[in-house]
Design a binder for these strands. Structure first.
Length: 111
DNA sequence: GAGTTGACGACTT
DNA sequence: CAAGTCGCCAACT
């Protein structure tokens, strides 16, 4: 159907395309979709993503500051941080160190 | 059917 | 420099 044109489906698609050891931001995804200022919708989409049957690497999506804001929704555990650490990403508490080093921009990589 | 919330971001004070 | 407010759009109550 029009799944590929749906806002949420696009979000899922991009998040699933994030390479190992990389992360992206809600704003970047929103921009790639065409709603640069609707970064909130990206977060909503990921929240719905848990309702999906397939797993969405939402732990690779962080906010503009590199803060694991979604961690609170990740089952209330530190799964999000542990997963990213497993991918070689360093953290300072809940914030990614050298975010730009791990930042993966869908607008550039996917085009 | 209407109001409020929500994994954010950028601007203004 | 830091904190507060507005804007986006859809879903949930």
């Amino acid at each position: 159907m029009d799944s590929e044109n749906n806002f949420f489906e696009k979000v899922y698609k991009v998040v699933l395309q994030i390479p190992w050891g990389k992360v992206t931001t809600y704003g970047a995804i929103a921009k790639h979709i065409g709603s640069a200022q609707s970064s909130r919708m990206v977060g909503w989409a990921l929240n719905k993503a848990f309702n999906k049957e397939y797993f969405i690497p939402a732990h690779r999506v962080v906010n503009r500051k590199g803060l694991l804001t979604g961690k609170n929704h990740f089952g209330g555990t530190n799964t999000m941080k542990e997963l990213l650490e497993s991918e070689g990403i360093k953290f300072n508490e809940n914030q990614i160190i050298n975010l730009e080093q791990y930042f993966w921009d869908p607008n550039i990589e996917l085009f």
